[in-house]
Amino acid sequence: MSLSRAQQEATMQPSFRQIRAFLSVATHLKFTRAAEELNISQPALTVQINQLEEALGIKLFNRNRRQVSLTPAGHDLLPLFERIASDMDEVMTASSDIYQARRGVVRIAALPSVTSRIVPKAMASFRQTHPNIQVRIRDVVAETIVELVKNEDVDFGIGTRLTPDRDIKVENFITDHVCAFYQGGHPLENSRAVLKLNECSAYPLILTGKNSSIRVLFERAMAREGTEVDIAAEANYMSTALGMVRAGLGVAILPKSAVDSGSILGLAYKQIDAPWLHRRIGIIRKASRSDSPVAEHFVRALHAAVNSMQNGSFSSIKKAELTR
């Protein structure tokens, strides 16, 4: 079967193995020494040099039984081939560094509640073992996390999938509970240890923005129970919501991890008892994309950070992929 012109041209392109062979012979000016260095037979080395000369259409060495020397063309090409070999060595070194997570960049989008404690803890330990890796964090709401992952603006996200989406895959990571935060001395202080949703809705509420995962979960819970609420204020940041509680504007509905996001001096909180208010936070990846070795190493650092946080706001959940 005859080869196409493109295939014929490809077969005539010098290979890196042939370039290595040329450089070795040019260094030793002996085929036997070069063959030993390359750990191949002398006939095989001769074939590689012949193929290189054929591909280039020029003679590179003058050869006889007593000596080998570079031709003028061989002298001219030597520095060019040395540069190619040097560049390839750099590529191989860089590839090895990336594979071993010795260099590179990992880009993450995460919920503010996660970036306030878990991510910094993971970064601190990761920096000790991977000092040349840059970690770039974007703290954004759940909706934006998914967009950034799908657009490949980040390597992965740490957040909550609010709606089914076949373009992403989610690995279980952590879970936290939704709580009511209130001023010290508030009537909720004398109620049961774990609150019912209707006990919270009896007071003016401070909620996070409509595109936040907590807001979505809370509204779904209210719809299931048919509960109406008085929304006193909204806040994009949990620290702002806590400040509003402190000012006496109402009761804030926030994840338990809000205690890591701002001062709760003078405030108290209780968990709200509603199964659908347990927030599951996962590692979000694009379904059609594989993790880089650097990203994989940082995911392991994240899991280690959660496991080392005893009695923390978050609980680790079994590492398994959820349904897309």
Rank of each mutant, 00 (worst) to 15 (best):
L277F: 09
E219V: 03
A233G: 02
A287S: 11
L254E: 07
V251T: 11
I272Y: 00
R246Y: 11
A274L: 03
D230W: 11
I284N: 02
P255F: 12
I281E: 12
K286E: 12
G266A: 06
M238C: 05
A252I: 09
G282W: 08
R224G: 06
D273C: 04
D273K: 08
E225N: 11
I272S: 02
K270Q: 09
I272F: 00
R220T: 02
P275F: 06
L265T: 13
S239P: 04
G248H: 14
R280N: 13
V245E: 04
D230H: 10
A232K: 01
E228T: 15
G262E: 04
R220H: 11
V251L: 15
Y269K: 03
N236I: 03
R285C: 10
A241M: 04
S288P: 11
F218T: 10
L249R: 13
L249W: 02
R215W: 05
G250N: 15
L249D: 10
I231P: 09
I283P: 01
R280V: 12
S257Q: 15
G282F: 15
A223P: 05
I281Y: 12
L267I: 07
N236Y: 08
E225L: 15
G266I: 09
D260Q: 05
N236V: 04
L217D: 05
S257M: 14
A258W: 05
R279W: 02
E225C: 10
A247M: 14
I283C: 04
Y269C: 05
T240Q: 13
G262K: 01
S263A: 09
A258N: 04
G243P: 01
S261V: 08
G266Y: 06
P275D: 08
D260F: 04
G262Y: 00
P255T: 07
I283V: 14
A247H: 09
A258M: 13
L217T: 05
A252G: 02
Q271L: 04
I272R: 00
E234K: 11
R280D: 11
K270F: 01
I253C: 09
S239G: 06
P255S: 07
L254H: 07
E225Q: 14
R246I: 07
R285H: 14
L217G: 09
D273Y: 02
I264S: 03
I281V: 14
L249N: 04
F218G: 08
S257E: 08
A232C: 07
A235D: 02
K256G: 08
R215Y: 07
M238N: 05
A235Q: 00
E225D: 14
A233C: 03
A247G: 11
A235Y: 01
I264K: 06
I231Y: 12
M238V: 14
G262D: 00
A252M: 08
R220K: 11
R279K: 06
M244N: 10
H278S: 04
G248I: 09
I272T: 00
A241H: 05
A232E: 00
I283S: 03
W276Y: 10
E228S: 12
R246N: 07
L254S: 07
V251R: 11
G248S: 05
M244Q: 15
T240H: 12
I284W: 05
M222S: 07
A221N: 07
A258Q: 03
A221M: 10
A241E: 10
